[in-house]
Amino acid sequence: MDRRRFINLLAAIAAITVFGFTFGLMFPLLSLIMESRGIAPQWIGYNAAMHPAGIVLSVFAIPYVVSRFGAKKAVIGAGLVTASVIVSYPFFPVFWWWFGFRVMQGFFVSILFAISEAWIVRFSEGAWRSRILALYTSILALSFGGGPAIIGLTGIEGALPFFVGAAVLLFAILPIFFVKDEEVDSEDETPLSVIAFARKEPVLLFAVGMFAILDAANLSFLPVYAVKKGFDQDMAALALTAFVLGNTVLQFPIGWCADHFPKRWVMVGCGVLSGTGSFLVPFVFGTWALWPVLTVMGATAAGIYTVALAELGERFSGHELVTGTASFSTMWGLGALVGSLAAGWSIAGFGPDGLPFTMAAVFMVFVASATVSAIRVRRPAR
Rank of each mutant, 00 (worst) to 15 (best):
R4P: 09
R4E: 15
R5C: 11
R5I: 15
I7K: 09
L9D: 02
A14E: 03
I16D: 14
T17E: 00
F23N: 13
G24Y: 01
G24F: 00
M26N: 14
L30V: 15
E35S: 14
R37N: 14
I39V: 14
G45Y: 00
A48D: 08
A49Q: 04
M50R: 06
I55K: 08
V56S: 00
V59H: 00
V59W: 00
Y64I: 14
K72N: 11
K73M: 09
A74D: 10
I76F: 02
T82D: 10
V87S: 11
V87M: 12
S88P: 09
F91N: 11
F91A: 13
P93A: 07
M104L: 15
G106A: 03
V109H: 07
S116N: 13
W119Q: 09
S130C: 11
R131F: 08
L135Q: 10
Y136N: 07
S138R: 06
I139R: 08
S143Q: 03
G146K: 05
I156W: 07
A159L: 05
G165I: 02
L170V: 14
A172G: 10
I173Q: 09
F177Y: 15
F178I: 07
E183R: 11
D188W: 14
L192G: 00
S193W: 01
I195P: 01
P202Q: 08
L205C: 03
G209V: 04
G209T: 02
I213R: 02
D215C: 03
F221N: 06
Y225N: 06
V227S: 13
K228N: 10
G230A: 03
L238S: 07
G255C: 04
C257M: 15
A258F: 07
H260P: 03
W265S: 09
V266R: 09
V268M: 11
C270I: 08
G271E: 13
T287K: 00
L294M: 11
A299S: 12
T300Y: 12
I304L: 10
F316N: 09
S317G: 06
T323G: 05
G324K: 00
S327W: 02
V338G: 01
A343P: 06
W345A: 13
I347H: 06
M359T: 07
M364C: 11
V367D: 10
A370W: 02
